[in-house]
Design a protein around this nucleic acid. Structure first.
Length: 862
DNA sequence: GACCTGCTGCGGCATG
């Protein structure tokens, strides 16, 4: 028999003239069956309705006669997204559906954009559906009597779970869910875990938890993390959309690879080819890897293709929100033909008009490239078109690797974070701020999460002590005594502490930046202090796609006016440095192995043939069982080049490690340079590399941690990590909104705390976390270990070379920028380098490098 | 306080 709910939905589908996909039906069955789990579906696949509609069917089935009149049902569905903008879009879609079906419901959002009045209204009258962010959920948990809000809660949805998984925001979500589970009726089932598929379903578990995730390498684990390790295994389902998305990927191949840049990261040489594609497409997104790169590209297009003025825009994270919103709307309205952007457009609203995506430079990962490619061709059945633009010759092989990886269905995993004590401390204080908590209860709830499954009672005790007394070290400072214990209830009584805590909920930390404003008012975005300090009044710089004259800085604001000059500096920002993912790196090595075996089925490989031929002549093309080391002498000293093809972070760690191990045999100091493919050790000493290689321990993983601690400034890395940890854990207060505490002070205070802890309480959990994070994320220890183990099985090919090879050249050029101060421009120096080594084959280096000033001394290994 | 190519994301008071 067809239920009332199904009937209503079917009718609605018909009116909409929509078809229901198989996975949507599967999702509905799982939902109505009372399951929780993970929906694996890409954006633009109707995933929102795949979850929302079953929820409506369920409700209508339960209230078949009153669903059109019944109001004030309390909060039934909580929908969490990582992006504020998404909450608004989804709200609109849901509200429209409810209106059309005659449900008199209120769908609301609650984010940082919600006004105080609206927030108060939400408390008085709960909406049926609330869309919010992880941070706002925790702010709700910091309110008095918060459990009342969730009295009627039926389901929590975590949208874009893959984006949160692997971050501290993800851990925050886990903790939030653990509380919602504990509040839900029959929550005791969470402590009795039946066998999976035992056939005995734990009945009446009312709260359902569903995650929505794009495809990642560890979907099963993603579901485990989401639901926690105390979730009844018989109530978990995985629903996969399996929508065949047609993807058309092409690499843009430079006309003459031999003359294409051997090094560089900007890629402007291919501008004409790129613009040909743009001209042929309706709407194009050009993705660049850095904010300054998008400014550079935008500027170059305006210079060379002035006809794009007015139909082209830019989008990146340092531009003002107003500007970005305008761009997004204009994209929707088909008013733009081209947008140059960074990953700020990776996620978010669907831009239907977009029919072409161009990726400039390595996307560094398969999943990221897929995500971006998917921004084009959103119509059902449409083909997503994506182009890859290499910024230097060897990068072209990444194009072949990307295609192969996608064909093989390889995706990166998102590794969940474990035992992040800073996030737990923040959560504990959050609960203490509202209704307070009892230690044993909370310990059990928290143990149910994936992140804190291994938390010991002793560690938990240390955290309790920390928030009540400041712990061993800080006990004498009042400001760390936040939480009081009253009859076993941990509670914050001070209004000041409570207020300050609410102000600092969240796990995202960022540097203080300088706002760019017109003299006449109106803000453009933000730039960094270090860039502003280079400017003198009257200087011109390019930002937000405009030529600006710098007037002055006042109170963290740089005032500017319009400039007519077409030349000017382009700001750079200090963003994160992403290494090539290990999955993409592995396929890249496969491709290289094919090359070494003379397999030339890829257009990219075919185009690169002359380059590889030269590599073979000058040195060697390593097969997968070989590890290439090149050595040569120059006026600069002795160069050793290693090629693990394992991403720059691993190379940085391995370079320091090997330098340290060499120095144990022979006293020498090294300069280090690296890119995603390999690294260079440069020294004045004549290192007997053959002897060093004979030493079995050279690539060994024995004493790895110890050697790393000696070779790298591990303390410094941990100290920097500790800054964020101290912020999140609430050890420092970053100031009231609009009057941030100066960075210098914060640095000084976190640095001081780090030292105090290290000295008096070396086993402090937060300090330990800082070291662990440095090891895991800065050094990618796990990957480094795997790489060393791989190398240990490979045959080492040591080649003495006369001049830099195609493999070596990009690494050496990267190191140029770090060399001693000279008056030569980058262009002159590269030309000189090419001449010096008689590298006729060496193509020109990227245009934009010409203007870069040489600066700063070369980085010392240790 | 280092970065030299270097991303993204959120949140926020005081008061009788």
């Amino acid at each position: 028999m067809i239920t009332k709910g199904r009937q209503v939905i079917q009718h609605w589908y018909k009116q909409k003239n929509w078809q229901q996909f198989a996975f949507q039906q599967e999702m509905e069955a799982a939902y109505l069956g009372g399951y929780s789990g993970l929906l694996n579906a890409p954006t633009g696949s109707g995933k929102t309705f795949a979850l929302f509609l079953p929820f409506l069917v369920d409700f209508i089935n339960k209230h078949p006669d009153t669903y059109t009149t019944q109001k004030n049902n309390g909060l039934l569905m909580l929908w969490i997204t990582p992006l504020r903008a998404l909450t608004n879009d989804i709200r609109k879609a849901m509200q429209e559906a409810c209106d059309e079906m005659g449900l008199p419901w209120h769908i609301a959002t609650r984010t940082g954009d919600t006004s105080a009045a609206e927030k108060a209204a939400l408390k008085r009258k709960l909406p049926e559906v609330l869309l919010t962010t992880p941070e706002s959920l925790h702010l709700m948990l910091a309110q008095k009597e918060y459990p009342k809000l969730f009295n009627n809660l039926q389901v929590v949805v975590i949208d874009e779970w893959h984006e949160l998984l692997g971050t501290k925001r993800g851990v925050q979500v886990e903790l939030g869910l653990s509380k919602l589970k504990a509040l839900s009726p029959k929550s005791e089932v969470f402590n009795q875990v039946p066998e999976k598929d035992s056939g005995l379903m734990t009945q009446n578990l009312r709260l359902k938890i569903w995650g929505i995730s794009a495809t990642i390498g560890n979907l099963e684990q993603a579901a485990e993390v989401l639901l926690g390790n105390n979730f009844p295994a018989d109530q978990i389902r995985m629903v996969r959309a399996n929508l065949e998305k047609k993807l058309d990927i092409q690499s843009i191949i430079p006309g003459n690879v031999e003359n294409y840049s051997w090094a560089g990261h900007i890629g402007l040489k291919l501008l004409p080819q790129v613009m040909e594609i743009v001209a042929k497409s309706k709407t194009t997104l050009i993705f660049t890897n850095t904010r300054s790169q998008s400014e550079i590209w935008y500027h170059a297009i305006l210079d060379n293709y002035p006809e794009y003025a007015g139909i082209m825009a830019m989008h990146h994270g340092s531009l003002d929100n107003e500007l970005r919103n305008w761009v997004e709307q204009a994209l929707h309205a088909e008013a733009l033909k081209l947008v140059v952007c960074t990953s700020s457009l990776d996620l978010g609203v669907d831009f239907r008009p977009v029919d072409c995506v161009i990726q400039v430079g390595s996307p560094k990962g398969v999943a990221r490239f897929m995500q971006r490619a998917g921004r084009s061709g959103h119509h059902p059945g449409a083909v997503s078109r994506a182009y890859f633009v290499p910024t230097h010759s060897l990068e072209l092989l990444e194009g072949a690797a990307l295609k192969a990886a996608i064909k093989r269905g390889i995706f990166e995993s998102r590794d969940p974070m474990l035992l992040t004590m800073d996030v737990l401390i923040q959560y504990m204080v959050t609960l203490a701020v509202s209704d307070g908590f009892r230690a044993d209860e909370l310990f059990n709830e928290v143990k149910g999460t994936y992140a804190f499954a291994d938390l010991t009672r002793n560690e938990f005790g240390q955290l309790l002590e920390f928030i009540t007394t400041g712990g061993k070290t800080l006990a004498q400072y009042d400001e760390f005594l936040k939480v009081e214990i009253e009859n076993g209830l941990y509670k914050v009584n001070s209004r000041r502490v409570a207020m300050r805590h609410r102000l600092s909920i969240g796990t995202i930390t960022s540097e203080l930046s300088i706002r760019v404003k017109w003299l006449s008012g109106g803000s453009l975005g933000t730039i960094e202090e270090s860039f502003v300090s280079k400017l003198k009044p009257g200087n011109t710089f390019w930002f937000a796609g405009r030529s600006l004259e710098f007037i002055r800085v006042k109170e963290m604001t740089a005032f500017v006016k319009k400039s007519n000059s077409t030349k000017g500096l382009i700001p750079s920002w200090n963003g994160g440095r992403m290494p090539l993912s290990s999955q993409l790196a592995a396929v890249f090595r496969d491709k290289l192995d094919e090359v070494a075996h003379g397999i030339e089925k890829d257009v990219e490989v075919l185009a690169l043939k002359p380059l590889f031929k030269l590599q073979q002549e000058l040195s060697h093309l390593p097969q997968s069982h070989e590890f290439l080391i090149e050595s040569f002498k120059s006026r600069e000293g002795h160069h050793l080049l290693f090629y693990p093809f394992e991403g720059r972070l691993v190379h940085e760690g391995m370079a320091s490690l090997l330098a340290f191990r060499i120095s144990k045999i022979r006293n020498a100091s090294f300069s280090i340079a690296m890119n995603d493919y390999g690294f260079e050790l440069l020294t004045d000493e004549d290192v007997p590399i053959e002897d060093v290689l004979e030493d079995a321990g050279f690539f060994s993983i024995d004493n790895l941690i110890d050697d790393i601690q000696h070779s790298l400034n591990a303390n410094e890395m941990a100290r920097r990590r500790f800054r964020d940890i101290a912020h999140i854990g609430g050890l420092v207060f970053t100031g009231y909104p609009g009057q941030q505490v100066k960075n210098k002070h914060l640095q000084a205070s976190t640095s001081l705390l780090f030292e105090v802890f290290t000295e008096y309480e070396p086993d402090n959990l937060l300090v330990r976390q800082a070291y662990n994070e440095a090891l895991a994320f800065q050094l990618e220890e796990f990957r480094l270990r795997a790489a060393l183990q791989r190398i240990a099985t490979q045959t080492i090919i040591l080649k003495t070379i006369e001049r830099p090879t195609p493999f070596a050249f990009p690494i050496m050029v990267d190191s140029l920028g770090r060399e001693k101060l000279t008056t030569e421009t980058m262009e002159e120096r590269i030309a000189k380098m090419a001449r010096r080594y008689g590298a006729e084959g060496v193509g020109e280096v990227d245009e934009t490098r010409k203007n870069r000033k040489p600066g700063i001394t070369r980085k010392k290994g240790f």
